[in-house]
């Protein structure tokens, strides 16, 4: 995944079955953000792998005051990359088991 300066990781073990998974997002490189980023902590949230859309969650984070509108694409892409990796690993585990 491209280094966007925003890190997204699993906030819990992925058993490969649950639809919603807890993710944790934080900024590793403030310089890569266009807007001023005031929150220095990690933001934990639940993501439904079937229903949720990364860019929508990113917009919710902007609306919740965590990021500036100009960074919604960067945040969305960071979430999308991590979700894609989770789905890829799940698919690989299933095919290995088959």
């Amino acid at each position: 995944a491209e280094d966007t300066g925003v890190r997204v990781e699993l906030a819990e073990e992925d058993d490969g079955k649950k639809a919603s998974i807890a993710l944790k997002l934080w900024v590793e490189d403030h310089k890569k953000l266009k807007g001023k980023y005031k929150e220095s902590g990690a933001i934990e949230f639940s993501f439904d792998l079937e229903k949720d859309v990364p860019e929508v969650v990113a917009q919710e984070m902007v609306e919740s005051g965590f990021f500036h509108e100009s960074d919604v694409k960067t945040v969305g892409k960071s979430i999308r990359d991590r979700v894609a990796l989770i789905k890829w690993r799940r698919a690989r585990t299933v095919s290995a088991a088959a």
């Binding site: 902590g41 990690a42 934990e44 609306e63 965590f66």
Partner: peptide, 27 residues
Amino acid sequence: SPSAQVVHSAGRRFIVSPVPEDRLKEQ
């Protein structure tokens, strides 16, 4: 410190907590 929480109007909860210790050293 108690983690802050923000609930978006769409219902998603965002919980803010310190960045994981081991990741701070990497910055």
